[in-house]
Computed example of a mutant assay.
Amino acid sequence: MECRAGCGACCIAPSISSPIPGMPNGKAAGERCVNLTAAFMCGIFGRADRPAVCSGFAADPEVCGDSREQAIRLIGWLEQATA
């Protein structure tokens, strides 16, 4: 599965404990990453300082569902289930 352009669910729903450019302490679940653009695209995609957890994320129908809204819910559920 290819990432849906303009989704950004993976930049909002999960917590990220590693430093992110502009967010040295990472981010909480449900918090928007400061690098997520207004068009819901990763502003640091392809950069060396992008966290490994972000670079390693692969879109999958099981996680992303059929829409941005489903992705937010599914990733949020996975976040809570694995906390």
Rank of each mutant, 00 (worst) to 15 (best):
G76Q: 01
G30P: 06
G26Q: 13
R73W: 08
G56W: 06
Q70M: 07
L74V: 05
L36W: 03
F57C: 11
C64Q: 07
Q70A: 11
I75D: 03
R73I: 09
T37V: 15
M23E: 10
A29N: 12
L74H: 10
G46N: 02
P24L: 04
I20D: 00
A71R: 00
A38R: 13
M41H: 05
A52C: 02
M41T: 07
S67T: 15
A48K: 07
C54S: 11
F40W: 12
S67Y: 09
I44P: 00
S55V: 11
M23V: 02
R50N: 04
N35Y: 08
A48Q: 08
R32Y: 09
G43I: 00
A59N: 13
D60E: 11
G26K: 11
S67F: 14
F40G: 01
L74R: 15
C54Y: 03
R73C: 04
V34A: 10
V34L: 15
I75G: 04
A52N: 06
N25D: 14
I20G: 00
F45K: 07
P24D: 07
I44F: 01
K27N: 08
E31L: 05
F40Q: 06
G76N: 02
R73N: 06
C54R: 08
A52S: 06
C64I: 05
M41S: 09
A28P: 03
R68P: 01
A39H: 10
F45R: 08
I44G: 01
G56N: 11
F45M: 10
S67A: 11
P61E: 15
Q70V: 02
V53R: 07
A48N: 10
R32W: 11
